[in-house]
Design a protein around this nucleic acid. Structure first.
Length: 390
DNA sequence: CTAGGGTTAG
């Protein structure tokens, strides 16, 4: 291998926590040789352990009060597509008396929704009376939301149409907001808009959430003047736009190529004491990334750092490619370092590009520094190989 | 003590 070739090599290797788990076994199936990595089954075992621990812990009512541990655990299992494990955990919860408290039952519905298991969510809703839990508009809304979360938009619309009369529930504004959201997500913009306009007829006033949902779908789809009309309607109804309203408008302007107007809108927000958040900054940064405007991107990244909010994964996923594609590997290096310090889970490929670019520009010291920084982290699941430097 | 709705990139 030529030395140049070796120099630019920065290959990622998986380093398991225990070396003994590193070996691969091969087996033959017909004429194919399959490589079976034992770390897969290690994960399986770990997750099963997690499930067992969880079920044990949930005997304690104190544990059951902890919402976030439910979310995190279920999210992790869903990420690994271990749906039967999710079922195992959540069905197990039904034995506890507080399932009859509406909040706890709704949590199950919502957790099933979050995992994409809408049928299970629906089953919990159907079972509520047996669980001594009254079905109300709140649990109905939890079910609708579960449908949106699991992207079963047709189901949301269907349930909204037929279920209330069957179980005598009166949908409220929250129900409408969720269904409007579902219609937006399934691309039925016209239906979403007609439901929005129909609110008036049924004696319901759209609120901030309704407006933000509609504004988002309009601006996102390039219907800028329609969005502006809705914006005006919102103000005429004395619904005060919040940071999310502004963010959706910022993204609209950027999508429309009006980046300097977006900058002005940012000033307008500040003058109205609406503090821009990381979504606001990301919206502007997207504009500068699309326009390959490195200087403005640097400036606004600086503004973001000085602001009360922090850059997030989206910020770095936009900015790092902007700079390495323009061969500004020094800036890419800075961004990577900051991202790592904030424990951002960037893809290994992104780091490879930066390391390779640094090596290409003979910035070996930085290249090595970056690799060492990555390898010293505990939160990243991969390791980099040090570039071979002459 | 546990409850419901709206935002970004790739």
């Amino acid at each position: 291998m030529s030395s140049l070739c070796r120099r630019v090599r920065a290959i990622f290797t998986r380093v398991p926590s225990k070396p003994s788990a590193n070996f691969c076994t091969t087996e033959t199936l017909g004429n194919k040789r399959l490589v079976k990595n034992t770390s897969a089954s290690t994960t399986e075992t770990q997750l099963q352990k997690l499930v067992d621990e969880f079920k044990k812990s949930s005997k304690s009512s104190r544990f059951r009060h902890n919402q976030s541990i439910y979310r995190r655990t279920v999210a992790r299992l869903a990420g690994a597509k271990k749906f039967s494990m999710i079922e195992d955990i959540l069905e197990d919860q039904k034995q506890y008396y507080n399932i009859s408290s509406q909040g706890f039952a709704m949590r199950l519905i919502s957790l099933y929704g979050q995992s994409g298991m809408f049928d299970h969510a629906q089953k919990v809703f159907d079972e509520l009376p047996e669980l001594n839990c009254p079905r109300t508009v709140s649990s109905f809304n939890a079910l609708l939301k579960a449908g949106v979360a699991s992207k079963k938009y047709d189901k949301v619309v269907e349930i909204f149409k037929e279920l209330p009369s069957r179980v005598s529930i009166e949908p409220d504004l929250v129900s409408y907001n969720i269904v409007i959201k579902a219609l937006c997500e399934m691309g039925s913009l016209d239906d979403a808009l007609s439901m929005f306009h129909e609110l008036d007829n049924i004696g319901k006033e759209p609120d901030l959430v309704t407006f933000n949902t509609i504004l988002n779908v309009l601006y996102r789809n390039g219907q800028f003047s329609e969005g502006d009309k809705i914006w005006a309607m919102m103000e005429s109804k004395n619904v005060v736009p919040d940071v999310r309203s502004y963010n959706t408008k910022l993204r609209g302007m950027v999508l429309d190529g009006r980046v300097s107007e977006a900058v002005q809108l940012m000033d307008e927000m500040k003058s109205k004491h609406i503090i821009p958040d990381v979504f606001s900054y990301n919206a502007l940064l997207k504009g500068f990334c699309d326009g390959k405007n490195l200087e403005e991107a640097k400036t606004w990244y600086g503004q973001l750092q000085e602001s009360e909010c922090n850059p997030d994964l989206v910020t770095y996923q936009m900015l790092i490619p902007l700079f390495f594609e323009a061969d500004d590997f020094d800036m890419a290096f800075e961004l990577c370092s900051e991202a790592i310090n904030q424990e951002m889970r960037l893809k290994k490929e992104m780091f490879t590009q930066v390391v390779n670019g640094l090596v290409k520009q003979d910035k070996d010291e930085k290249a090595c520094k970056l690799v060492e920084l990555i390898n010293s982290t505990k939160y990243l699941k991969y390791k980099l190989e040090l570039p071979v430097v002459d």
